[in-house]
Simulated assay, not measured.
Amino acid sequence: MPTTDEPVIVVDGVGLLYRRNRLARRNFKDLFSRAARRTRPGEFWALRDVSFSVRPGEAIGVVGRNGQGKSTLLKIVAEVVLPDRGTVSVRGGVAPLIEITGGFVADLSVRDNVYLTAGLHGMSKREIDASFDEIIEFAEIGDFLDTPYKHLSSGMKVRIAFAVISRLEEPIILVDEVLAVGDRAFREKCYERIEELLRDGRTLFFVSHNEGDLRRFCTRGLYLEKGEVILDAPIDEVLDAYKAATAR
Rank of each mutant, 00 (worst) to 15 (best):
P56M: 09
L239Y: 00
A241P: 01
D129M: 12
G103L: 10
S154N: 13
R34N: 07
L204M: 06
V238D: 07
T72N: 00
T39L: 14
A24F: 11
T117R: 12
R215M: 12
A59Y: 00
V105A: 14
G86H: 02
P56F: 06
V181N: 04
A161R: 10
R48A: 05
G102A: 15
I135W: 06
F205W: 13
R25T: 05
N113H: 08
T4S: 15
N210Y: 00
G221N: 02
E134K: 15
E192H: 12
E6C: 01
F32I: 07
L168Q: 11
C190P: 01
E140T: 07
R220S: 06
F217K: 07
E225R: 14
I98F: 04
V110S: 11
G57M: 02
V158H: 09
Y149E: 12
N66S: 13
S53D: 13
A139I: 09
L23M: 05
K189N: 08
E99H: 01
F44T: 02
R193F: 06
E196D: 14
A245K: 13
V77P: 03
G61I: 06
R26N: 06
R34H: 04
R55V: 04
T117Y: 14
K226R: 13
F132C: 09
A244R: 10
V114E: 12
V90D: 06
G13Q: 10
L108S: 07
K75Y: 08
G42N: 05
R248M: 01
A35R: 15
G155M: 08
D133E: 15
V88N: 05
G69Y: 00
E237G: 01
